[in-house]
Amino acid sequence: MNYTDRIKFVPTEMKKEKPLTDQLEFGKTFTDHMFMMDYDQEKGWHDPKIVPYQPLIIDPAAMVYHYGQTVFEGLKAYLTEDNRVLLFRPEKNMTRMNSSNERLCIPPIDEELVLQALKKLIAIDRDWIPASEGTSLYIRPFVIATEPYLGVAPSKKYKFMIILSPVGSYYKEGIHPVKILVENEYVRAVSGGTGTVKTAGNYAASLKAQELATSKGYSQVLWLDGLHRKYIEEVGSMNIFFKIKGEVITPALNGSILEGVTRNSILMLLNHWGVPVTERKLSIDEVYQAAIDGELEEAFGTGTAAVISPVGALFMNEQEILINNGRTGELSKKLYDTLTGIQLGTQPDPFNWMVEVQS
Rank of each mutant, 00 (worst) to 15 (best):
G236A: 06
F315Y: 14
S283P: 10
E259N: 04
L314D: 06
T4I: 14
P11C: 12
G168W: 01
I257V: 06
P310I: 08
T146F: 15
L269Y: 08
S359F: 06
S132K: 12
P154K: 07
L115V: 02
T95R: 12
V187K: 15
T278G: 04
T80D: 08
I284K: 08
G192N: 08
L322Y: 03
E147Y: 14
T250N: 09
K245G: 08
S155A: 14
P107T: 01
K198H: 00
L20N: 13
E320C: 02
V277C: 14
T328N: 04
D285T: 13
G193P: 01
P19Q: 03
T146Y: 14
L181D: 04
I109Y: 01
D47K: 14
L164I: 10
W273Y: 04
L104V: 00
A189H: 10
A209F: 05
W128I: 13
V275Q: 15
I342M: 13
V10C: 07
V85D: 00
P48I: 06
E330Q: 10
V167E: 04
R140Y: 07
I342A: 09
T95H: 09
M34A: 03
K198E: 01
N98I: 01
I266P: 04
F300N: 01
F160A: 12
K281Y: 12
A291D: 00
W45K: 11
F242W: 11
M238E: 11
I266M: 12
R229E: 01
T146K: 14
Y3P: 02
F26E: 02
L56S: 13
L137P: 05
V178E: 09
P108Y: 04
E147M: 14
Y186E: 12
T199I: 00
D349I: 11
E112F: 00
Q358Y: 10
G27S: 09
K230P: 00
L207P: 05
R103V: 05
T29G: 00
E234K: 04
S215T: 09
A77N: 12
I308A: 09
E73N: 04
K243M: 15
I50N: 14
G341N: 07
K76Y: 09
M97T: 05
K16C: 08
